[in-house]
C-alpha cells in the first residue's frame, strides 16, 4: 500500500531524512519510534504534503501512485490521513460543517455521491458512539478552545468519519494523561480493519501498551536503523535508544 524508498528530505539546508525505506502492507499497524530530532515528524509531514520540506531523493508510492507529486488534498482523496501532533485551531469554522465538506470533497474526488445533511448527521452520531465522544463536539469550532486531550480525540473522530486507508498518527500520545490515552487508543483500535493501515509515530513505548503494532521501526538520524516485531518496543523500553545508536556506529 505504501512504499518509501531511499527518501531524503531537507528543512532549509539541513538534511533530516537521509535515505529512509519503509514498506507498509494493507491492514498493518507500524510503530515508528525514535529519539527527538530523529526525523519522525518530518516523515509524517513529508508523507502528508506539508510545505517547508524539500524532497531531495528517493520515492514514495501510495496505492500505486507517486505520492510526492500530489497536492495535500489529492493525498487525502487517495486515502491518506494525518492526525496532527498539534491540531490547528480554526476559530469560526464549525466542526460539523468542516467535516461534511471534507468527507464530500473526498467522496466527490472518488466519484462517489455526496452525503446529504441527514445521512451525514447519522454517520456522525454513529461514530461518536463508537468512540464514546460527546456530541457537543459537533457544534464547536474546529479545535478552538479545546483542551489537549479534546484536540487529539477530535483528530481520531475525524479519522473515523473520513475512513482513510492509511492513517499516520503523529505523536498522538504526547501530552495525554492515561485516561485520555486510553480513549484515543480505544478509538484507534475500533477503527482497525484488514483494509486500514496505521503508522504510529511515537517517542514512548507507552502507547504500544494500548495499540499493539504488527511492526516496530526505530528511526535515528534520518534512517530506519532497526525493524522488528512488537518485542522491539519492549527492548527499547528497557535499554533506551542509546544501544542502537552505538550499534549503528559500530
Amino acid at each position: 500500500m505504501l512504499s518509501v524508498k531511499g527518501l531524503k528530505a531537507n528543512v532549509g539546508d539541513k538534511e533530516i531524512l537521509k535515505g529512509l525505506d519503509l514498506e507498509i502492507g494493507r491492514g498493518e499497524v507500524h510503530a515508528i519510534m525514535g529519539p527527538n530530532g530523529s526525523g519522525k515528524s518530518t516523515l509524517a509531514h513529508v508523507l502528508s504534503g506539508r510545505e517547508g520540506y524539500t524532497v531531495t531523493g528517493g520515492s514514495v508510492t501510495f496505492e500505486g501512485q507517486d505520492l510526492l507529486d500530489l497536492e495535500p488534498e489529492a493525498r487525502a482523496h487517495l486515502g491518506l490521513f494525518l492526525a496532527f501532533q498539534y491540531p490547528v485551531e480554526l476559530p469560526g469554522v464549525n466542526n460539523t460543517y468542516f467535516l461534511k465538506a471534507a468527507l464530500n470533497a473526498i467522496r466527490k474526488a472518488r466519484g462517489e455521491p455526496e452525503l446529504d445533511a441527514v445521512s451525514f448527521l447519522r454517520l456522525m452520531k454513529e461514530k461518536l458512539k463508537v468512540l464514546h465522544l460527546d456530541d457537543s463536539l459537533l457544534k464547536r469550532p474546529v479545535n478552538f478552545g479545546f483542551s489537549g486531550g479534546e484536540k487529539k480525540r477530535n483528530e481520531i473522530f475525524q479519522m473515523a468519519i473520513l475512513e482513510p486507508k492509511l492513517a499516520i498518527l503523529d505523536e498522538t500520545d504526547s501530552g495525554l494523561d492515561i485516561d485520555a490515552l486510553r480513549i484515543v487508543a480505544d478509538g484507534v483500535n475500533a477503527l482497525r480493519s484488514p483494509e486500514r493501515s496505521v503508522i504510529l509515530v511515537t517517542h514512548y513505548q507507552r502507547l504500544l501498551d494500548y495499540i499493539q503494532p504488527d511492526y516496530v521501526h526505530v528511526l535515528a538520524k534520518g534512517q530506519i536503523i532497526r525493524s522488528g516485531g512488537k518485542e522491539l518496543a519492549l527492548e527499547l523500553e528497557d535499554k533506551g535508544y542509546g544501544w542502537l545508536g552505538a550499534e549503528e556506529a559500530a
Binding site: S48, G49, R50, E51, E71, P72, E73, R75, A76, H77, F81, L82, F84, P87, V88, L90, F98, L99, A101, A102, L103, A105, I106, A109, Q158, L162
Partner: peptide
C-alpha cells in the same frame, strides 16, 4: 495562516 490552510487541505478540501 499557512498551518490552518494545510490542516484543511490535509482533510481533502481544495485550496
Amino acid at each position: 495562516e499557512p498551518e490552518q490552510l494545510f490542516y484543511l487541505r490535509s482533510r481533502g478540501l481544495s485550496a
